[in-house]
Design a protein around this nucleic acid. Structure first.
Length: 295
DNA sequence: CATTAGCCCTGAGAGC
DNA sequence: TGCTCTCAGGGCTAAT
């Protein structure tokens, strides 16, 4: 479930491995991702130099020579699995399975796209559920891409202020939980970090979005910032491995106060009268919160 | 226009 | 042991 911190971590890992390198060859093994790969995708990548990386919301933008950028979205289950130059891809156990192509290269099952770099690095886009997508976009028009055009402010940027958030929430009658998942309100939050940020800010996920203004918005903005910054700083400890050869999935849930902790004591007010962490369903998705601390 | 339900997809885990 | 069922959810489209 890559949200902003995981995408940031993956992007940094890719940058360390691939910035300045040239794509010798690309393979499109399965074009039917969330949207079909663009025409002649693999051919258009070959020979390009990788100039730099940036992140926008949950999207990675890879600036290439020739005036185009590679847009990457990891969806729900997407990973970038990299084999650094000169390192053999370690055999891997488990349900991911393995395969060998006709050249003898091995990779994980569901490896839909492969980039081969000029120093021998091999980067695979692996996405079992295929909710992710890849596209090519003119670099000078990245922000006009249909998937990026409607995104709200970056939560870690200066533009994300309590006043800006209040303005974006004004008139919205939906629960604040649903509003924060709306990428046009703020870009990059997913279910986990919305739950955690609302907990830190002491705001009920059921509260009508337009009432989050003034002091509440003043608490929520720094709460969002803090939880994202901590998650990034924690190494995306869960997902730093996503860009490693072994594709190991790290620890995840240990750092969370409420997410996935239904029935457990609230970290801030353990014991009665606090009923502990509750789970409700909003817009078809689980919300975890402390009903005593969050109002 | 605002909001919600449905859909896509596969693996993990629970229950029988 | 092995099957079936439920859940996970990002972001779109269709329906309300």
């Amino acid at each position: 479930m890559p949200e902003l911190p995981e995408v940031e971590t993956v992007m940094r890992g890719l940058a360390a491995l691939a910035e300045g390198r040239t794509i010798l060859r690309a393979e499109a093994r399965r074009p039917d991702l969330r949207w079909p790969l663009p025409d002649r995708f693999a051919e258009r990548l070959a020979g390009r130099r990788i100039l730099g990386f940036r992140r926008r919301g949950k999207y990675i933008l890879t600036r290439l020579s020739g005036g185009e950028s590679l847009l990457i979205h990891l969806g729900m289950s997407g990973r970038m699995v990299a084999k650094p130059a000169g390192v053999a891809l370690a055999p891997r156990e488990g349900p991911q399975g393995r395969f060998s192509d006709m050249r003898g290269n091995t990779g994980a099952l569901h490896e839909h796209v492969v980039l081969l770099l000029d120093d021998g690095t091999r980067i695979g886009f692996v996405d079992p559920r295929r909710f992710g997508c890849l596209d090519l976009v003119p670099t000078d028009a990245e922000e006009s891409h249909p998937l990026l055009a409607g995104l709200g402010p970056e939560p870690l940027s200066d533009g994300f202020t309590p006043a800006a958030l209040s303005a974006a929430l004004a008139g919205k009658r939906t629960p604040i939980k649903a509003a924060l998942l709306d990428q046009s309100v703020v870009a990059g939050l997913g279910n986990i970090y919305v739950c955690e940020a609302l907990y830190r800010a002491g705001i009920s996920p059921r509260r009508s979005a337009h009432t989050v203004a003034g002091a509440r918005a003043g608490r929520l903005v720094p709460a969002i910032r803090a939880v994202l910054a901590e998650a990034i700083g924690a190494g995306g400890s869960s997902l730093r491995d996503y860009v490693r050869a072994d594709g190991e999935i790290g620890r995840f849930q240990e750092t969370f106060a409420v997410y996935g902790r239904e029935g457990e004591p609230c970290p801030a007010c353990p014991g009665p009268p606090c009923p502990g962490v509750r789970r409700i369903v909003q817009a078809g998705r689980s919300t975890f919160f402390c009903p005593r601390r969050q109002r």
